[in-house]
Design a protein around this nucleic acid. Structure first.
Lengths: 303, 303
DNA sequence: CCATGGGCATCAGCATCACTTATGCGGAGT
DNA sequence: ACTCCGCATAAGTGATGCTGATGCCCATGG
């Protein structure tokens, strides 16, 4: 059986690694275990390299390489299909907005309200997701518009993978702040250096704008070793962990200042900003374009 | 016949649009015309939309959308295959460097010479290609290392599509200059504004760093209408066209100054630089890494 | 040490499907 | 109106991707 590197094969390859099992992947995909085994064998024959170790199932180096491509390929396939499916733009006024947690600012909410009154928008939905899922939703048309936030140097863009024809635009830029529990010794300072806090106790919140590995990347350090992990998009919960002295967190300043039991101190060094970017596909729906136009543009002058 | 959106179908779809003909695409792919017709029919059935107008063959809106994804998908598939194929890194010391025209600076040549003497490199090859082809060669392992050049704002990266796990790094940043024929009235000026030249006669050289649509993009104008088109990577030829007063060209200043019959005048406004970026995959060959290390890093301080 | 069981590989059989060849059909040019 | 060119369609066939059954390997437990 010799088939070329095909979509199905990649899909089962990814599924096998997700489930760490041929048989579980098979039932998840609606195949028999035999079929999955043959898929992997075909891929390995085609690429001329062993991709998986079995028992236990784990990627070989070649398999690891393939995993750097396969999910992106499958996502882009879905994006292509979605791009075409949403072409007949005659759908009723319906709008889905995907947001990462700290991206849903008052300005965005106001824009949505304006649009709602202005166009009698039938049905609007806001989905709060982790950052990568936002891009995924926009690409696959599960959302018409996306807002992702993250930290970056003042003039750098957010590091978003480019998996299709999308347009991004900065929607907001805010100072980054470290959250301290109210009585913390550093909480009285006017500003802090992140690099002074690499050895402190931090909370890793990989579904928010500031996962610790991002901080490590922008600070070029190995520090910020996590003590607690927070999953999900609930920032109030995250702040309450910090208030309980479980570890530090970083969030945009205006937002950070709203949490009870928290003192937010701006980050002075390195020069970082919390940036929110608006994402839509190259061909947004009419409603998406309207909402995008209502969301205020970040003014360069204010930076 | 109902098959999902598969690699083959996308490949023939792209081929049909390239050849603007079902039958020519068929023979190019080694299929019969009938097979191609069935492929397109299957794709259209799967996506639920007509993709091509026939007689003459042209993309529908949906087909245009698909063309925004399909070539990138196919390239990334090849990139994945290449990434795995080059894993057994025990290949002999052999190095292929893909360069866009103005990226092959003296510093690069020197680095290559150093590597050659230092490691008795058996076989080195330098390929001069248009910018997009460089990325393509690096992704598909036709080249171990790539150098692309282009114009951008001083702190912006070059707009390279991200089609796989690659690493880029700025290798050089040079002022941008406009080339005038020796006796040209503006040739005596110390600097020029690009925006004053939108109505001038230009040469469009889409295979070099400064295609006119890029200039239009960075200047946010509709000007720079081409009078002559230059294809290929031969910059001396391009400069000679300008020397013959066929139209203006923009190139990095140090390079531009070397052409006979040409006066190069730096661009003052908008603030632009000619930047050269070094590209390799996330897992470069040993030789590629060595050469990359030998190519001087652009010093931020000098900007 | 052997017995047991879970899990991937392999084999044979079969229904499906993607190709080819041959023919149909519609529009543009003479 | 005839003809040619080029895409669509039909029928047939060899290839192939699936299933179910079985084999084999390794880990675990007695």
């Amino acid at each position: 059986m010799l088939m070329p590197m095909d979509t199905h094969l990649l899909r089962t390859f990814v599924a096998v690694l997700e489930h760490r099992s041929f048989s579980r992947a098979a039932s998840a995909l609606g195949y028999t275990q035999s079929a999955v085994s043959q898929h992997i064998a075909a891929l390995e024959a085609d690429l001329g390299a062993r991709l998986l170790e079995r028992r236990p199932v784990a990627p070989t180096p070649a398999g690891t390489r393939l995993m750097e491509h396969a999910p992106a390929l499958l996502l882009r396939l879905d994006a292509a299909r979605a791009d075409i499916a949403r072409l007949p733009d005659a759908r009723p006024a319906r709008l889905t907005l995907a947001c990462s947690p700290a991206a849903l600012t008052p300005a965005v909410a106001q824009a949505l309200a304006q649009l709602h009154t202005a166009t009698r928008l039938l049905d609007a939905e806001v989905r709060l997701l982790a950052g990568e899922s936002v891009l995924e939703d926009v690409l696959t048309a599960r959302a018409d518009l996306g807002l992702v936030d993250g930290v970056a140097a003042p003039s750098d863009p957010l590091p978003l993978p480019d998996l299709g024809p999308t347009t991004t635009r900065t929607a907001a830029e805010q100072p980054l702040a470290v959250l301290f529990p109210a009585g913390h010794p550093l909480a009285r300072r006017r500003s802090v250096r992140l690099t002074d806090l690499t050895q402190a106790r931090w909370i890793d919140a990989p579904d928010t704008a500031v996962p610790l590995d991002r901080l490590r990347a922008v600070c070029r350090t190995d520090g910020f070793r996590p003590r607690v992990r927070h999953r999900g998009t609930d920032l109030h919960g995250l702040a309450s962990l910090t208030a309980a002295d479980l570890g530090l967190t970083a969030l945009p300043l205006p937002l950070a200042a709203t949490f009870p039991g928290i003192t937010a101190v701006p980050v002075e060094e390195p020069r970082l900003v919390h940036r929110t970017e608006l994402i839509h596909t190259a061909h947004p729906t009419a409603a998406a374009q309207q909402l995008a136009d209502l969301i205020p543009r970040h003014s360069e002058a204010a930076s």
